[in-house]
Design a binder for these strands. Sequence first.
DNA 1: CTGAAAGCGCTAACAT
DNA 2: ATGTTAGCGCTTTCAG
Lengths: 323, 323
Amino acid sequence: MKVKLEDVAKTAGVSPTTVSRVLNNRGYISEKTRQKVEDAIKELNYYPNDLARSLFKKRTNFIGLILPTINNPFFSELALNIENLFSDLGFKIILCNSSGHYEKESSYAEMLIRQQVDGIIVCSYNRGIEAYNHPQLPFVAIDHYLSPNIPVIGSDNYEGGRLAVQHLIERGCKSIIHMNGPADLETPTQLRRKAYEDLVENPITYELEDTFDDEATAATIKKILSEHPETDGIFASDDLIASVCLKVANELKIKVPEQLKVVGYDGTQLVQVLLPQLTTVRQPIEKIAKAAVLKLIDLINDPSTVKKEEITLPVKLLVNSTT
Amino acid sequence: MKVKLEDVAKTAGVSPTTVSRVLNNRGYISEKTRQKVEDAIKELNYYPNDLARSLFKKRTNFIGLILPTINNPFFSELALNIENLFSDLGFKIILCNSSGHYEKESSYAEMLIRQQVDGIIVCSYNRGIEAYNHPQLPFVAIDHYLSPNIPVIGSDNYEGGRLAVQHLIERGCKSIIHMNGPADLETPTQLRRKAYEDLVENPITYELEDTFDDEATAATIKKILSEHPETDGIFASDDLIASVCLKVANELKIKVPEQLKVVGYDGTQLVQVLLPQLTTVRQPIEKIAKAAVLKLIDLINDPSTVKKEEITLPVKLLVNSTT
DNA sequence: CTGAAAGCGCTAACAT
DNA sequence: ATGTTAGCGCTTTCAG
């Protein structure tokens, strides 16, 4: 059997309350009793049961983090920052990889509610997930409109798109295409596309079916580039897609940046190490994480915090040798 | 207030026991009562409190995952696989980024115990963490020797090192150096180095101080390559280090693979997309994840499962254009 | 087939 | 300064 508070009380020769007091540093305790209790804790190698504590306190210090996949530089950098910040504040993260699937996302959300998490950060979104309407449960969304009263954090997607496309135009591109992920939802990230479509005369946006499958993505891109040899600029909606474009261009012996210029999006540390030549739009991931964490903490500590809010952080164009 | 089982019981006009029975599909219940209860659940939008349930059952279905940082292709791919597998089995992951720091790792481990996790997977290790000796708590380690009776899962590090170095030799390298992360511990991954040192006449292994700081790593590598212009082969202990080597070589106008050949290690999907030209040793991440998960599940379900075990999975050399 | 009652491990009034 | 008691929300004997 596991050692419990009662066992500690017995060996210390005090009541459970006293042990609880020592554990939580609450109320007055004589130095002598405190010592006795601490000795007993050491002796028995006692660890308090936070489940029981949470049940009583109605506070778990658990945060749910729902994202498409942790195996993506943007989300892993974001998750790292979020986890670090929460960890410093005494919160723990439950990691949920939805793969973008409705069923998964829905069951994760339900699980988190049953687990009594204090709040949820959502970076993924399928419409119509009932659990997102859970009353009193604080939510913060990153780059997605979950519901009218869930705050949204993100960076300036329109400006990011504008910077990227403007840059391609300035570099002399005449025939710029846009590669996007599946775009069935109206998310803030669609503003990247909007900026492109606003700036280019005959915009052509390709929606890649399944960006989780790099082979398929490569095949699609190869087809597009073969059918549109006039293409001299690509604005990709993320760095991974941009990277596949570069790979395909290389296979097709298209010279970058001479014949084709490519701009990515996200600008994670990882991509800057692995693909330093990529021109890309850097999102302020650290700031996004911080804003999301602070907002969620506010919501948790003070339910009257204004919810209807959209925080937009500035982006930056990193010019390198693919343009 | 939150809706609780008792509320459901009241609106359904039955006892809490009956509601619990419906929730858990246990015992006999008339179709009529079941319907009444289910209607009440819907009506009240009730979600069971898994905290209370876990407290009673002494089973949380929580798994702790301790790793240095999720923002690293190897760990994020591993974590994704582990989380997916556990999720299918009804377990939830608590994510812990230790940054390799003793203090953090130690407090995470303690937190997990207090949280009553059913098991822990550790991919990071600092010696002397008391919590790792917690009796009855199942642990599985990946690439680290935590204690004599904690099973270790990993891939064939010696063979991986051998394949990499052998390949460089076969490609004609005469002066091969090895770039390693900080190596203060005797971990299975040190076998990569051992293979290198066994195969090369005058082995020189550089231990990079802080591989989390890419700038510093780049500076160190630049210094090494300048001081040892005869170097014609580098075996890096992971792909990120290899990538920095390539970047530095590029800056120093050293031609790869003509003047310098580079082999990395890990071969994650991400690196294969972002840096497809890199020759590297691919670890079977999916298999490592599966083995770790299955082992931990065994340990959880049957504490008598043999613990002292080392599972070693095969690696593969992926030859590309950096060699 | 259903209900009453005790208890999982902890905390917080309320005593003393 | 310390102990007694009730209860967090659930499950499970045990009775009926």
